[in-house]
Design a protein around this nucleic acid. Structure first.
Lengths: 121, 121
DNA sequence: TTGACATATGTCGAATATGACATAAAGTTG
DNA sequence: CAACTTTATGTCATATTCGACATATGTCAA
């Protein structure tokens, strides 16, 4: 796109960006959900590894059995923060948590993200 | 500790665990704070890298300039979730986020974490 | 079967995080 | 300096997340 046209569009209240930029919000949401699921699985795995009940983990993090159950099923009412807090409380290191957060479990799916797009400011 | 004594203490309502287990809650809190600060710094760095204002980032994540300011100063009112969402919305990968979460910035401080402790159930 | 224990689900009032707004403070440019 | 832009801070009503509780479901041994 020519600079002159870009400027004209922007003056009219449009923002010129990539389609990727437009899609990133929903992508971000999906990634957040995936992260939570991965963290939830790790919470359950670590707890079982340590052979303790949800009740006991609940006491450890100052919560209740029902919330721990929700944690492990990645209920939509649980925060990233509580998931991570739980892992750390069970002795996980930052590195371990970072590894879970940063590792994509599912296989990559190609997406059209390079096309230009116009997005209303 | 002998198993018999352990059993007796537990019967009296005590839980036998390591001092580490006892300290892990506060340790977890500290780690969470450190993570947030690291993420906050990255938000600011990425935003400046992209040469966009807080106002513009706010639009990108569906929030307000004041909240972005709080994000970047790691205000206690901001969640891990919003921090990560912001990074992802700016195009950060899960791997990048994981790296920040998992990397300890400050130097390690030795702590006495091996001694046994009794913790009221 | 029954009973004991573990986990899952739904609901609730309380606590916390949210976007929005106003406005102060800091930084930039002329 | 003043005008302007950007960032920081305080407040508030609303939304989300919280621990707690009740209760359902599942598991397993007596």
């Amino acid at each position: 796109m020519k600079a002159s046209k870009k400027k004209k569009l922007e003056a009219a209240g449009w923002k010129v960006g990539s389609a990727a930029e437009f899609l990133e919000l929903s992508d971000a949401e999906e990634m957040l959900v995936n992260m939570k699921v991965a963290l939830a699985k790790k919470v359950k795995a670590m707890r079982q590894e340590k052979k303790i009940t949800q009740q006991r983990l609940a006491k450890l993090i100052g919560s209740s059995q029902s919330r721990v159950a929700k944690l492990e099923t990645a209920d939509r009412s649980v925060s990233m923060e509580l998931l991570i807090r739980s892992l750390l409380s069970m002795g996980a290191t930052r590195a371990q948590v970072g590894s879970i957060v940063g590792t994509r479990k599912t296989k990559r799916v190609a997406k059209a993200k390079k096309k230009k797009a116009l997005v209303k400011r």
